[in-house]
Computed example of a mutant assay.
Amino acid sequence: MNYAQLKQDIIEYSKTIGIDKIGFTSASTFEEMKIRLVEQQALDYQSGFEEKDIDKRVDPSLLMDKPKSIISIALAYPSKMKERVVSKKGARRGIFCRASWGTDYHVVLKNRLQKLEEFILERVPEALCKSMVDTGELVDRAVAQRAGIGWSGKNCAIITPEFGSYVYLGEMITNLPFLPDASMEDQCGSCNKCIEVCPTGALIQGGQLNAQRCIAFQTQTKGFLAEEFREKLGNRIYGCDTCQTVCPKNKGIDFHNHPEMEPDPEIAKPLLQPLLHISNKEFKEKYGHISGSWRGKKPIQRNALIALAHYKEESAVEDIILVMNKDPRPVLRGTAAWALGKIGGQSAKEALTNGLIIEKDQEVLAEIEAAFARISSEG
């Protein structure tokens, strides 16, 4: 088998199926990444969404018998909406991060990897292939860096010269011995913009993230948000793009190469008030195809309440009162109380007074008491 020719054939084929960038690396252990992951674990900087077994995250031989190579792919996604919708008084909107625009990227990349796998197996029927996207064991970023897709930026994203950091990553482990590509040198230089503007200081230093403090992580949790994170959330209802939007390497970058990644503005930047009372069925029908729906509607609804408070949207007070009085979930009732305390007004104060009488959950009561005290102190 002429593996050099096969590699070139794979590269050429990848262009025909909508893969924007492809790289090859060895299947040797990611020793440097292991050191970093052990440190992250010791510092409790992990999100908890990752594969728990660090060895599996860095050693491809634990995932496949005698692996020889890893193929890394990248697909560029849009950074701007072709059609704009405006958030205005009486019709406030939240925002899903760019990585949740269009069809769930897990689905899109798995489709591309499946086609790539079929192409390889047609030529080498005995080949072994194992593909993964995001939720797999390997660290996508480590694979992409070593395969020459881009460099690992200080914002903990892979930054490519062509597409900036607006790329989705996936990889395929195989037992075929392809010649590895050269890794890419770091090009962040002395720039620290992402670290300086991170809303919560989650970027400890270049390339080190405390995921527990990351706004993107916080938007995906299901419990009460700590006060400091509520104050930083703004109108984000899923994810955070700040460390990407300030990156000089992303200036002017906006690719629309894949129709399935195009955002529907009404979904990517939805009206907040309708989210408060959306049913499970309606949520699944409208948002089920995007990656930002994976945790269900509860975190989205909690974040929508916080966003309405951020706007001090008085027209939403009656909707928020309904959540505080009727929603069966304590986190939503308590967050609604907090939002009423932030927005203020006589209706909110009366509702909180009533809430102190009818609420039984201790955590929710604490939120109502704090909100009532806030309104009272403001007169």
Rank of each mutant, 00 (worst) to 15 (best):
F229N: 03
F229C: 02
R230I: 02
R230M: 08
R230A: 01
E231Y: 07
K232H: 09
K232L: 07
L233P: 00
L233Y: 02
L233T: 00
L233G: 00
L233F: 06
G234Q: 05
G234N: 05
G234D: 06
G234P: 04
N235G: 01
N235R: 08
N235M: 05
R236I: 00
R236N: 08
R236C: 00
I237P: 00
I237T: 04
I237Q: 00
I237N: 00
Y238L: 02
G239P: 04
C240V: 10
D241F: 04
D241V: 04
T242K: 08
T242G: 02
T242A: 12
T242N: 10
C243F: 05
Q244R: 12
Q244K: 12
Q244P: 06
T245F: 09
T245Y: 06
V246C: 13
V246I: 15
V246Y: 03
V246W: 03
V246M: 07
C247S: 03
C247F: 02
P248S: 11
P248W: 07
P248T: 06
K249Y: 07
K249V: 01
K249G: 02
K249R: 15
K249W: 08
N250Y: 00
N250R: 03
N250G: 08
K251E: 06
K251N: 10
G252D: 07
G252L: 03
G252S: 10
I253L: 09
I253N: 02
I253Y: 05
I253C: 03
D254N: 14
F255M: 11
F255K: 05
H256N: 13
H256I: 06
N257M: 12
N257S: 12
N257H: 14
H258D: 04
H258R: 10
H258N: 09
P259V: 11
P259T: 11
P259S: 12
P259W: 12
E260A: 15
E260G: 11
E260T: 13
M261P: 01
E262D: 14
E262P: 02
P263F: 06
P263L: 07
P263T: 09
D264V: 09
D264K: 13
D264S: 13
D264M: 10
P265R: 06
P265E: 10
E266G: 11
E266F: 15
E266D: 15
I267C: 08
I267V: 15
I267H: 09
I267R: 09
A268T: 05
K269M: 14
K269R: 15
P270T: 05
L271F: 10
L271T: 00
L271K: 14
L271E: 10
L271I: 05
L272R: 03
L272W: 05
Q273P: 01
Q273C: 13
Q273Y: 11
P274M: 11
P274F: 10
P274Y: 09
P274S: 08
L275W: 01
L275K: 01
L275G: 00
L275A: 05
L275E: 02
L276H: 01
L276D: 03
L276G: 01
H277K: 14
H277F: 12
H277L: 09
H277W: 10
I278M: 15
I278R: 07
S279M: 13
S279P: 04
S279I: 11
S279A: 12
S279F: 11
N280W: 08
N280P: 00
N280S: 15
N280A: 13
K281D: 15
E282I: 10
E282Q: 15
E282F: 09
F283Q: 02
F283C: 09
F283G: 04
F283R: 08
F283H: 06
K284L: 14
K284G: 07
